[in-house]
Amino acid sequence: MTLHNADHVVVVAGALYDRGRLLAARRSAPPELAGRWELPGGKLEPGESAEKALVRELREELGVETEPGERIPGEWLLKPGYVLRVWTARLVSGEPAPLEDHDELRWLGRDELGSVDWLDVDRPAVDAVAARLWPAPARDA
């Protein structure tokens, strides 16, 4: 099933999770987004599955091999005609480096997620990822 259709372009992002931390990437381009943080990823190519696109994009942007995990429920409008869909991803090999569109990477723990200036469109996605990766502890009755 392809997620690319005439109505919108799907942008896939990876919630790259390793040793209890989530990877954040600071944009270096375009100018209106530079300096703000996002979950790394990119556009689906026609006929490409979301999982394959995620692996390809993380390889191109970060120089790492990853394994897609579960899709985070929901999708977020990036701009007219573009929607963001997020998957968890596991680092298989390599050390992430900012190769394309980013100038800095940071591994963030649960209580550090607010320490970077996330892109507005990424904030709800990051919140959804955090709820999935770090569920709230059960309360004693």
Results as ranks from 00 to 15, higher is better:
residue 38 E to R: 08
residue 58 L to K: 01
residue 112 E to G: 04
residue 24 A to D: 03
residue 67 E to C: 10
residue 87 W to N: 01
residue 37 W to Y: 06
residue 48 E to Y: 11
residue 86 V to K: 02
residue 99 L to H: 12
residue 39 L to I: 05
residue 136 A to C: 10
residue 38 E to H: 15
residue 38 E to A: 10
residue 40 P to L: 05
residue 113 L to E: 06
residue 55 V to T: 10
residue 139 R to T: 10
residue 104 E to M: 07
residue 6 A to F: 10
residue 31 P to R: 15
residue 35 G to F: 14
residue 8 H to D: 05
residue 26 R to M: 06
residue 47 G to S: 09
residue 95 E to N: 08
residue 119 L to P: 04
residue 134 W to G: 00
residue 92 V to H: 12
residue 138 A to K: 13
residue 134 W to H: 09
residue 57 E to P: 00
residue 133 L to T: 02
residue 139 R to E: 14
residue 117 D to N: 12
residue 24 A to G: 11
residue 132 R to T: 14
residue 23 L to D: 01
residue 115 S to N: 07
residue 54 L to Q: 01
residue 116 V to F: 03
residue 54 L to V: 00
residue 140 D to F: 11
residue 32 E to D: 14
residue 105 L to S: 14
residue 53 A to I: 13
residue 103 D to I: 07
residue 101 D to R: 15
residue 75 E to S: 09
residue 91 L to Y: 14
residue 2 T to I: 08
residue 96 P to W: 12
residue 55 V to L: 04
residue 83 V to P: 00
residue 39 L to N: 09
residue 23 L to Y: 11
residue 31 P to S: 14
residue 129 V to K: 08
residue 139 R to H: 11
residue 5 N to G: 02
residue 91 L to W: 06
residue 46 P to V: 10
residue 106 R to Q: 12
residue 8 H to T: 04
residue 125 A to V: 02
residue 21 R to D: 00
residue 19 R to W: 13
residue 8 H to I: 00
residue 106 R to Y: 07
residue 71 R to A: 12
residue 33 L to P: 07
residue 20 G to K: 00
residue 49 S to K: 08
residue 87 W to S: 06
residue 125 A to K: 02
residue 136 A to L: 14
residue 20 G to F: 00
residue 99 L to R: 12
residue 12 V to F: 08
residue 91 L to F: 13
residue 33 L to F: 15
residue 94 G to K: 13
residue 67 E to F: 12
residue 29 A to P: 03
residue 2 T to G: 02
residue 107 W to H: 15
residue 138 A to F: 09
residue 75 E to R: 10
residue 88 T to G: 06
residue 46 P to D: 09
residue 112 E to R: 11
residue 88 T to D: 00
residue 55 V to P: 04
residue 34 A to Q: 12
residue 24 A to W: 01
residue 127 D to T: 05
residue 12 V to W: 01
residue 131 A to E: 11
residue 110 R to I: 02
residue 123 R to E: 13
residue 9 V to I: 15
residue 29 A to G: 08
residue 51 E to F: 01
residue 14 G to W: 00
residue 116 V to R: 05
residue 122 D to C: 04
residue 97 A to W: 15
residue 85 R to M: 06
residue 99 L to S: 15
residue 39 L to K: 08
residue 79 K to Y: 12
residue 85 R to L: 00
residue 45 E to M: 14
residue 96 P to C: 14
residue 89 A to M: 06
residue 129 V to S: 08
residue 37 W to A: 05
residue 19 R to P: 05
residue 118 W to V: 03
residue 136 A to H: 15
residue 105 L to A: 09
residue 82 Y to S: 07
residue 80 P to N: 05
residue 119 L to H: 08
residue 86 V to W: 07
residue 136 A to D: 11
residue 11 V to I: 04
residue 50 A to K: 00
residue 109 G to P: 10
residue 17 Y to N: 03
residue 81 G to S: 03
